[in-house]
C-alpha cells in the first residue's frame, strides 16, 4: 500500500556525538552517539538498530516556575545546581542532565556572569554529556549563548534551542565553541525541514543538529507530536536527508497539566511520574533518541522499559555504559 512502510535500504539517521572525553578536549567520562538507525525504533538489530536512546533529567537554575512536586522530591538539591546535576547521574540514574537557564526568562535579566559560573559548576559536578538550554528572548540571546557556549567550550554539549525566528545566536555559539544544537519547530514536518536548511546555511554541520518537533504533553496535543515524530522518521528513512537527524522530545508541560497539578498531595508524585512516563515512552516508540523528564522517579521506569525494548540489539556496554573506551 503505502511505500512508507518499508525503509529504503541503506538510509540511516545521521549520528550525532555528544560529550567529549579528555582525549577529545573535554572532561566527560562517558560520551554518547545518538542516531544511526536504519529502521523504525526498536525493530532493528546490529548496525541497523543504531545507537540506544538516552534519558535526560531536566534541572534548572531558578526554581520559581519549576513544578512544586519535583521541588518537594529533590529537596535541598534544588538550591544547589551542581549537586542537583550530580544527583541526576548518580542517585537518579539519568544518562544526562538537561540544564535549563530559567533565570534568563525573568524580565530584565542581566546577570550574564552567573550563567558561565553555573555551567562550570555543573560540568565540574557531572561526568556525562550535557544539554544546556539558554534564553527564549531574542534581545539577550546573543550574550546568553556566548556565555554558555564559552563556559562549556570543548565539552560538545547539546545547546538549545534554535527556532525559526531566532537561531543565529545559538548556531554561532555552537560553531565557535564546538557544540551541537537543538532545532525546535512547532509540530510540523515542513517547518522542521526548513529550520534544518536554515541552520545548514550558518555552516553548522548536519551531524551537530538534533530535531525537536515539539512535544505537547499527554492529553494536551500529544497525538500531534507522536505522529509528527513518526512521520519525520518515516520520510527520513525514505531518503529525506534534511530530516534524517536524531530527535529529542521533552513534554515540558507534563507537570503543569490539570491532572497533575490538581492531584491530591499524597498521590501527586505517582500521577506526575505516570503522566511523564506515558508521554516519554511513547515518544521513544515514535522515534525520539533523547527523551527528557523532570521527575526523578520517571527515570527508573523509563530505564527498565528501554532495557526491555533493546534486549539483545546492542552490546551491553553501549546500551548502559561507557562507549568512549
Amino acid at each position: 500500500m503505502s511505500e512508507e512502510h518499508n525503509p529504503e535500504p541503506g538510509n540511516r539517521i545521521l549520528e550525532v556525538r555528544l560529550g567529549a572525553t579528555k582525549a577529545e578536549g573535554g572532561t566527560r567520562e562517558r560520551v554518547y552517539t545518538v542516531g544511526g538507525a536504519g529502521t523504525f525504533p526498536f525493530l532493528g538489530a546490529g548496525p541497523a538498530a543504531g545507537h540506544p536512546p538516552r534519558i535526560a533529567l531536566e534541572i534548572c537554575d531558578d526554581t520559581r516556575t519549576w513544578s512544586p512536586i519535583v521541588l518537594r522530591e529533590v529537596g535541598d538539591l534544588a538550591e544547589d545546581t551542581g549537586a542537583w546535576a550530580a544527583a541526576a547521574e548518580t542517585t537518579f540514574g539519568a544518562d544526562m542532565v538537561r540544564l535549563s537557564f530559567t533565570s534568563t526568562r525573568q524580565r530584565g535579566f542581566d546577570d550574564f556572569a552567573s550563567l558561565g559560573t553555573t555551567v562550570e559548576e555543573v560540568i565540574g559536578a557531572t561526568k556525562y554529556p550535557l544539554i544546556v538550554e539558554g534564553s527564549t528572548e531574542p534581545a539577550i540571546d546573543s550574550e546568553v549563548y556566548r556565555r554558555i557556549g564559552e563556559a562549556a567550550e570543548g565539552e560538545r554539549v547539546l545547546l538549545g534551542t534554535a527556532e525559526a525566528d531566532r537561531y543565529r545566536s545559538v548556531a554561532a555559539s555552537a560553531l565557535a565553541y564546538g557544540h551541537a544544537v537543538v532545532a525546535q519547530t512547532p509540530i510540523d514536518i515542513n517547518l522542521a525541514k526548513q529550520l534544518n536548511i536554515l541552520l545548514h546555511e550558518t555552516a553548522l554541520p548536519p551531524e551537530r543538529i538534533v530535531i525537536d518537533p515539539y512535544t505537547g504533553t499527554l492529553g494536551y496535543g500529544f497525538e500531534y507530536s507522536y505522529s509528527v515524530m513518526e512521520r519525520i522518521r518515516s520520510v527520513a528513512l525514505q531518503g529525506d536527508a534534511d530530516l534524517a537527524r536524531p530527535m529529542i522530545s521533552s513534554a515540558i508541560d507534563s507537570l503543569n497539566v490539570k491532572e497533575v497539578r490538581e492531584a491530591d498531595p499524597e498521590t501527586a508524585d505517582e500521577v506526575a511520574i505516570r503522566w511523564e512516563f506515558y508521554a516519554a515512552f511513547s515518544a521513544l516508540i515514535a522515534g525520539a533518541e533523547i527523551v527528557c523528564v523532570r521527575h526523578p522517579g520517571t527515570v527508573a521506569l523509563l530505564r527498565e522499559a528501554l532495557r526491555a525494548l533493546l534486549e539483545g540489539s546492542h552490546p551491553q556496554e553501549e546500551a548502559y555504559g561507557d562507549e568512549s573506551a
Binding site: 499527554l218 491532572e259 492531584a263 498521590t267 505517582e270 500521577v271 505516570r274 503522566w275 512516563f277 506515558y278
Partner: peptide
C-alpha cells in the same frame, strides 16, 4: 493503579 490507569486511558 489509578494514576497509571488515567495516563493509559488518556494516551
Amino acid at each position: 493503579g489509578p494514576a497509571s490507569t488515567m495516563a493509559a486511558l488518556t494516551l
